[in-house]
Computed example of a mutant assay.
Amino acid sequence: MKKYILMSVLLAGLTFNVKAQPKQIKHVILIGVDGFGAYAVPQANMPNLKQMMKTGAWSLKTRSVLPSSSAVNWASIMMGAGPTEHGYTEWGSKVPEIPSATKTKYGLFPSIFSVIKIKSQKLKQP
């Protein structure tokens, strides 16, 4: 269960702090490490990641969703919802196994990417 801690924290930090970010920031980098346990962080020799953690958003106490498989958890991270809402419940899913609670105009559950796409389209309109 601990393997998605860093990914979900980075995403949570990005989504919760979007309005607080200065306007001059034009890019956001999302780093996800599959299978990375929080228990290893204090002893790990990873100076670059630890330097980014000093100035970024992160936590070592988040949890994965159930079932605890990579695809389901990545979907939950990118969509900001659990499997009962987005519908993906199995590894290798191309379409949701259960109907999504809501869908965008693209026929998929909203994700950080669809929100960014919609926002950028609104900004481009006169």
Score class of each variant (00 low, 15 high):
Lys117Gln: 04
Leu30Gly: 07
Ile5His: 06
Lys3Cys: 05
Ile112Val: 14
His86Trp: 12
Phe113Glu: 02
Gln125Trp: 07
Ser70Cys: 14
Lys119Tyr: 06
Ala44Glu: 03
Lys117Phe: 06
Tyr106Arg: 02
Ala81Glu: 00
Tyr88Ile: 11
Lys26Ala: 14
Gln121Phe: 10
Gln51Cys: 05
Gly13Met: 15
Trp91Lys: 00
Asn45Met: 07
Ile25Gly: 01
Pro83Arg: 13
Ala38Arg: 00
Ile118Ala: 09
Met52Ala: 14
Lys94Val: 07
His27Asp: 13
Thr84Gly: 05
Pro96Ser: 01
Met53Asn: 05
Glu85Leu: 10
Ser111Cys: 11
Gln43Cys: 02
Lys26Arg: 15
Ser59Met: 00
Lys103Glu: 03
His86Asp: 03
Leu66Tyr: 14
Val95Ile: 04
Asp34Pro: 11
Ile112Asp: 00
Lys3Ala: 12
Pro126Glu: 06
Leu14Trp: 08
Leu123Phe: 08
Val95Pro: 03
Ser100Asn: 09
Ala75Met: 10
Gly107Arg: 11
Pro96His: 13
Asn45Ala: 13
Gly107His: 05
Ala57Pro: 02
Leu49Arg: 04
Gln21Met: 15
Ala44Gly: 13
Leu11His: 14
Ser8Glu: 00
Phe109Val: 01
Trp91Ile: 07
Lys124Met: 13
Val28Tyr: 15
Ser8Ile: 09
Ala12Trp: 00
Asn45Tyr: 14
Ala101Val: 10
Pro99Glu: 12
Ala40Tyr: 12
Ala38Lys: 01
Val28Pro: 08
Met52Gly: 09
Ile29Glu: 09
Leu108Val: 13
Asn73Gln: 11
Ser76Pro: 02
Pro47Asn: 06
His86Ala: 00
Trp91Ser: 08
Trp91Asp: 10
Ser111Gln: 01
Gly35Arg: 03
Lys103Arg: 13
Lys117Ala: 00
Pro126Asp: 00
Lys122His: 11
Pro83Thr: 06
Arg63Lys: 09
Gln24Phe: 12
His27Val: 08
Thr15His: 11
Ser69Tyr: 03
Lys119Met: 13
Lys26Pro: 08
Ser111Tyr: 06
Phe36Asn: 08
Gly37Met: 15
Ser68His: 08
Gly32Tyr: 04
Lys54Glu: 07
Ala12Asp: 04
Ala40Pro: 00
Lys2Tyr: 03
Leu14Lys: 09
Val18Asp: 15
Phe109Lys: 08
Leu10Asp: 13
Lys105Glu: 14
Lys122Glu: 11
Gly82Asp: 04
Lys23Ile: 07
Ile77Cys: 01
Ile112Lys: 11
Gln125Met: 05
Ser59Cys: 06
Ser111Ile: 00
Met53Trp: 11
Val95Asn: 13
Ile118Thr: 00
Ile98Asp: 02
Lys103Pro: 12
Leu10Arg: 02
Ala101Trp: 09
Leu11Asn: 11
Trp74His: 09
Trp58Gly: 01
Ala75Ile: 10
Ala57Ser: 06
Met79Asn: 13
Asp34Leu: 07
Pro42Met: 08
Leu60Met: 14
Val41Leu: 15
Gly56Ile: 01
Lys122Leu: 10
Arg63His: 12
Gly87Ala: 01
Arg63Gly: 05
Lys26Asn: 15
Ala101Thr: 08
Ile31Glu: 11
Met78Ile: 15
Ile116Asn: 03
Lys103Cys: 10
Gln121His: 06
Gly87Leu: 12
Thr104Ala: 05
Ser70Ala: 10
